Simulated assay, not measured.
Amino acid sequence: MLVHICCSVDSHYFLQKLQAEYPEEKLTGFFYDPNIHPYSEYYLRLLDVKRSCKMLGIDLIEGEYDVENWLEAVRGLEHEPEKGTRCSICFDRRFEVSAQKASQMGESTFTSTLLTSPKKSLKQLQVAGDALAEREGISFIAPDYRKASGTQEQNILAKEDALYRQDYCGCMFGLNIQRDQQEKLADELFVPLSKQIQPESIEERIQMYEKRWEMEEANIPHKIIKQRFLNWRLMMGQLRIRKEVVPAHFLPYSTLKKEYTRGKIEYHIGEIHHMNRDEVRFITLDHYNDLSNSNYKTVTELIFSPPAFSKEVELRTKLGVTPYDLSIILVVKQIPTNKIEILCQSKVYSDVKEVLITI
């Protein structure tokens, strides 16, 4: 039996139920989810599915990440709600490829872990699965493992085995709609030009879950815990001196009360130069290099290849900045002496992150 897999939380429980109900069947997992955005999120979910299948002794096949065809299939349906027309097409697309894969492999049956997702319509999924199975000359099974407290059992199992629990279905359209309703920033879609890994980003989670895999392989006791913290994202920052844009690096947690300010350097204390408005501070690239033990030749080089986020937070501390200070700190080649204009679109917000610890 070929089992289309959407994510580890759904598949881990679903596959174990199938193993119990169909003990004579050889189950093969098929991870095919071109709807998942961004690719880093796709990779993270695949990583956890691989771990789940390894734990259950199930072979896994990865389908093609043909995101362009998926986007074309749902064109014009970007604002459809969850369980709407876009979702129907998404199911059809994934089921069609899964049914074709099952037929190519000589399997007589296929199913999908989407059936156990509480966010999906069981009837909607069964109609799509049956139609595509008939076309391929195979059968589609749609067991209801949600009933009899199945969803609760699924959640308990996911927690016991420390599975990665994503908090959105998968596609960018559903994510944006969900975050708008929650009045939250869709920071999953933020990737800095510098490629610096941001706190509680998908890229940071990938690092953690890859490290977790290594610790499991080495039998190192560990635990994933959650912590609440103040997160930050910079959407855009610009420094202009006499209307000319000048390279400037914004240190983490730099914010403005409004998005724009202007002024001039009023005084300095040691190597830190203070603007006369909005608590803005400047340091030179040379001072940055001294504090961070780095050797950046230009500010542009720093902008596009900064050190780790945590290292720059430590640097703020070395500048005498308290943990609660959200003032802008700009790194420039030379301290400006003329009129300064700053545009800073950033956001600070309460967030929760997972942390891997050794026990």
Rank of each mutant, 00 (worst) to 15 (best):
E244L: 06
D180F: 02
K223P: 04
E259A: 03
L193F: 10
I220K: 05
A248Y: 07
R233C: 13
M172Q: 02
K195I: 12
E214T: 04
N176Q: 05
S194K: 06
W232Q: 11
Q166T: 06
F229H: 06
L175C: 08
Q181R: 14
E259M: 01
Q238F: 03
D161C: 10
L239Q: 00
Q238D: 11
D187R: 07
E217F: 05
R212V: 03
I177F: 09
Q182N: 11
E200P: 08
K223E: 09
R205W: 05
F229T: 12
N176E: 07
A218N: 14
K223R: 04
L251N: 01
E210C: 01
S254T: 07
E266W: 10
P221A: 11
V246T: 11
S194F: 13
Q166F: 04
L157P: 02
F173D: 00
H222Y: 04
K258F: 09
K226W: 08
F173A: 07
I202P: 03
V191T: 06
R240G: 11
Q178L: 07
A158Y: 03
Y253R: 01
I225S: 12
V191W: 00
I197S: 12
I224R: 06
K184L: 03
L185D: 03
A158R: 02
I156S: 10
Q198L: 11
L230F: 12
L251S: 05
Q181M: 02
K257S: 13
M215G: 01
K184E: 04
D167M: 14
N219K: 05
P221I: 07
I265Y: 02
K184C: 00
L189N: 05
Q207E: 06
R228M: 00
P252L: 01
S201I: 04
Q238W: 09
K243F: 07
Q166N: 08
M172P: 00
W232E: 09
E266S: 10
K258P: 12
H249G: 09
M235C: 15
A186R: 03
Y253D: 04
R262M: 15
E214G: 04
K257P: 01
M236D: 15
K258Q: 14
F229K: 05
V246C: 12
Q198K: 02
K243M: 09
L189Q: 00
I220M: 06
L175W: 01
Q227W: 02
F229C: 06
R242T: 09
R165P: 00
V245L: 06
A158F: 00
V246H: 03
G237H: 08
R262K: 15
F250I: 00
L193M: 14
K223H: 04
G263P: 03
L175M: 12
E204L: 06
N155T: 13
E204N: 00
C171E: 07
K243Y: 08
Q181P: 01
C169H: 13
I224A: 08
L234M: 02
P192G: 12
L189P: 02
H249K: 13
Q227L: 04
L230A: 06
G263F: 04
